[in-house]
């Protein structure tokens, strides 16, 4: 047995680290959504009187857009693994544009909601705005990660940076999927 293994079979450590981070964030979202369900099923009227149920169209479309942005991210990770720096850059840049547009729309909707409903009105408003905000923050962090990747990849593609691309891609798969769950939870009064 020699100490010169060149082909790796297991994933790189940084990727595993991201998987664990995703596990904790998934648990976080799990508790937030469980809190929504808990509060919802202890009242007969949800949303409470005087509060309009959220529309389902815009949030659903946006959630699907975010899922779509995972495709260029996956392409970027695939390209990075094969050492194709420019292709990876292109994939990340494309994903970034979609994600930024997505977040822009979401912030607009959020501000719009805030103008009509105060989070401190009642439990419904509290959990609604908090759950959404936590997801938007995760998207924001993801965008920052994209920007960082673009900066790092603008010069060279080292093994470290290759791991970074696959880790960030995994993060985005998670944020996109959890976005579907959050959207489903938020729009559940309309089912």
């Amino acid at each position: 047995m020699t100490a010169t293994a060149t082909r790796r079979n297991a994933r790189p450590n940084g990727w595993y680290g991201m998987v664990i981070l995703v596990a904790t964030e998934a648990s976080l979202f799990g508790t937030l959504m469980a809190s929504y369900v808990y509060l919802r099923f202890q009242t007969a009227v949800w949303p409470p009187h005087g509060v309009a149920a959220p529309s389902a169209t815009a949030p659903t479309v946006l959630a699907l857009v975010l899922v779509a942005s995972a495709l260029p991210m996956a392409y970027a990770a695939h390209a990075a693994d094969r050492g194709r720096r420019r292709a990876a850059l292109a994939g990340i840049a494309c994903a970034l544009v979609i994600q930024a547009v997505y977040l822009g729309f979401q912030i607009h909707l959020y501000a719009d909601d805030l103008s009509r409903l105060s989070p401190s009105r009642d439990a419904y408003a509290s959990i609604y705005f908090t759950l959404l905000a936590v997801h938007h923050i995760h998207v924001g962090v993801g965008i920052l990660l994209d920007l960082w990747l673009l900066a790092r990849l603008s010069r060279r593609l080292t093994p470290y940076r290759r791991t970074a691309v696959s880790a960030v891609a995994f993060y985005w798969y998670f944020v996109a999927i959890v976005g579907l769950f959050v959207t489903a939870t938020i729009t559940s009064p309309t089912w």
Partner: peptide
């Protein structure tokens, strides 16, 4: 902290919380 700092109502019975 959101309840204490911004007056949100996750735990207040009178406002649908628990």
């Amino acid at each position: 902290e959101l309840s204490r700092k911004f007056g949100l109502h996750f735990f207040d019975v009178g406002r649908g919380g628990n």
